[in-house]
């Protein structure tokens, strides 16, 4: 497999890898480094890449594992929580969002979720993967994933209601 066909293979999901990395590592730079690292690892094993049932699921699993390792390692102790803004992305969508602060709130709420729930929420609600695919990526069974997802969604909703009410009381 040469460089261009490898890039063609990974292009459809490299953004998803990056977003999952960012959801876990929070910092944009860290997530970029992690994505690069995982892509290079994939490239090194590109001889075997055709033998995998789903390269995308494999890549997502690698990203997940790499980021969890990063979080566990000592270096991760120096990780800064960088809440990057979305100013340069999707201007039309941003216009619909009256309050950019609410996006930051959502980010902050997500970082309070346990890593597993955070990943599952990311894979389902943002990347819109089927449960079957998520089960493969997370190496969990589907009912466990549904339980975790349900918990995550409820937690996010409750935190948002609290924030929202707090906001109203303040004004």
């Amino acid at each position: 497999m040469d460089a261009s066909s490898f890039l063609n293979t990974v292009t459809p999901f490299k953004d998803k890898m990056f977003r999952l990395a960012k959801r876990l590592l929070v910092s944009k730079e860290e997530a970029e480094d992690a994505t690069q690292e995982v892509l290079l690892k994939l490239w090194k094993s590109s001889e075997r890449i055709e033998t995998y049932k789903s390269v995308e699921a494999f890549a997502m699993t690698m990203t997940k594992n790499y980021c969890l390792d990063r979080l566990k390692s000592k270096q991760a102790g120096h990780l800064k929580l960088v809440h990057s803004n979305y100013q340069d992305e999707s201007v039309s969508l941003q216009r619909k969002v009256e309050n950019v602060d609410s996006l930051e709130w959502m980010q902050r709420i997500l970082t309070t979720l346990p890593e597993q729930q955070r990943m599952i929420l990311q894979l389902r609600d943002i990347e819109q993967y089927e449960f079957e695919e998520i089960a493969e990526m997370m190496d969990m069974n589907q009912s466990a994933i549904r339980t975790a997802l349900s918990r995550a969604r409820k937690t996010v909703r409750e935190s948002l209601i609290k924030t929202h009410n707090y906001g109203i009381q303040q004004s």
């Binding site: 994505t35 979305y86 969508l93 996006l103 959502m106 943002i126 948002l160």
Partner: peptide, 14 residues
């Protein structure tokens, strides 16, 4: 708020 966040978060690119 949740769904607008999901929509915006999906737009982020590597």
């Amino acid at each position: 708020m949740m769904f607008s966040f999901f929509a915006v978060a999906k737009e982020e690119r590597f």
